[in-house]
Simulated scan of single mutants.
Amino acid sequence: MLVRCSTGNLSLVAFTLVAALYSPQNLHAQTSQLQAQQAVEAAVQSELSAAQTDKSLWIYRGHDVTPGKDVTYQAVQTPDGELKRIVERWGRPLDGAASDEEMSRISEYANDRSAQAKQRKEDAHDDEQASSMLKMLPKAYLWTIVSETPETITLAYQPNPAFDPPNMESHVMGTMAGQMVIVKNGNRIRTLRGKLVGDIKIAFGLIGKLNQGGTFDIERREIAPGLWQITETHVHIGGHALFKTIGTQEDEVKTGWKPSPAHSLPEAAGLLKNP
């Protein structure tokens, strides 16, 4: 996930936090802040490590809703990439002609090395960007503990006024606040949710703006021992660019996870013939 830009004035918040942390009568607050920071750093390291070592492949069913689109699809992952076949639109199964067209599209892609290479390049870029954003989490926010159970720890985050975003993509982090839930066993991130606490202005607002109040919620679950996947994504952010509506409005839920036996895209296409 992640969207992309103007921070509000948080100097008073920062001053209040620093005063609380270093006040002699608030040693517990200082300890809690340190524990929260350590929890985030451990979770980030666990996720980065898992991204390098987890080579598991899956079959799952997804339901994706965006403005003007409501589709249910079956997905099959392979070492060469992933194939998705739409099986329903707006809650209704595809008719024969639409189903044949969908399989034709899948078969064509499964045998198009150029298209596959382009997709792998885009996926690699997305993975690199996600990794970079993940590494910024400990520094981009001020973290505090909200609650804790034997299994999980819930943290709240606010923009860190000392964070200097290195690029436009990371600038958005200066306007987000919310909560993160970490599962202690393995230090894995289960939930990351938040909202834009300020407008995100592109070129000082001359080109566009994403509106304050936009929300996102990413849910991850352990679908097999030690193996985690994003199971829900809910993003509702609005705005405009040169008088055109921009932003992201999407709700996607993934269920029915099971190991994929496909070793290639043609094999995945064969499995999708009977989803």
Rank of each mutant, 00 (worst) to 15 (best):
M1S: 14
C5G: 13
C5W: 10
C5L: 15
S6K: 12
S6L: 11
G8M: 07
S11I: 11
S11Y: 03
F15I: 11
T16D: 13
T16P: 00
L17A: 13
L21R: 14
L21P: 00
L21N: 05
H28R: 12
T31C: 04
Q33C: 06
Q37F: 02
Q38C: 00
Q38S: 08
V40I: 15
A42M: 09
V44L: 03
Q45L: 12
Q45V: 03
L48T: 00
K55I: 05
L57W: 04
W58Y: 04
I59K: 14
Y60P: 01
R61S: 05
R61D: 04
D64N: 11
T66E: 14
P67G: 06
D70P: 01
T72L: 05
Y73V: 02
A75Y: 10
T78C: 09
T78M: 06
P79C: 05
P79H: 02
L83S: 01
I86A: 07
V87T: 15
V87I: 14
W90I: 08
W90Y: 15
G91R: 06
G91C: 08
R92M: 04
A97K: 15
A98G: 05
M103A: 08
R105T: 00
I106M: 10
I106S: 08
S107G: 07
Y109C: 03
Y109A: 08
Y109T: 01
A110K: 12
A110F: 04
A117N: 09
R120F: 04
R120N: 13
D123N: 13
D123W: 12
H125T: 04
K135V: 00
M136K: 11
L137M: 09
P138N: 07
P138H: 07
Y141G: 06
V146G: 01
E151F: 06
T154W: 03
L155I: 09
A156L: 08
A156T: 03
P159V: 07
N160H: 07
A162W: 13
A162R: 10
A162T: 13
D164S: 10
P165F: 00
E169R: 14
H171S: 10
V172E: 12
M173N: 00
A177L: 02
A177K: 06
Q179A: 08
V183I: 08
K184T: 11
G186E: 04
G186P: 03
N187W: 04
I189D: 01
R190D: 02
T191L: 15
T191F: 13
R193F: 07
R193M: 09
R193K: 14
G194C: 05
G194K: 02
G194A: 04
K195A: 13
D199I: 06
I200G: 14
A203M: 13
F204S: 13
G205A: 14
L206A: 14
G208V: 01
L210G: 00
L210I: 04
Q212R: 15
G214Y: 01
T215D: 00
F216S: 06
D217G: 08
R220K: 07
E222W: 06
A224F: 09
P225R: 06
W228E: 02
W228P: 05
Q229H: 04
H240V: 01
L242S: 09
K244E: 10
K244G: 10
I246N: 07
G247T: 01
T248P: 00
E250G: 06
T255S: 05
T255W: 00
K258L: 09
P261L: 04
S264Y: 05
A268D: 03
N274A: 13
N274R: 10
P275E: 01
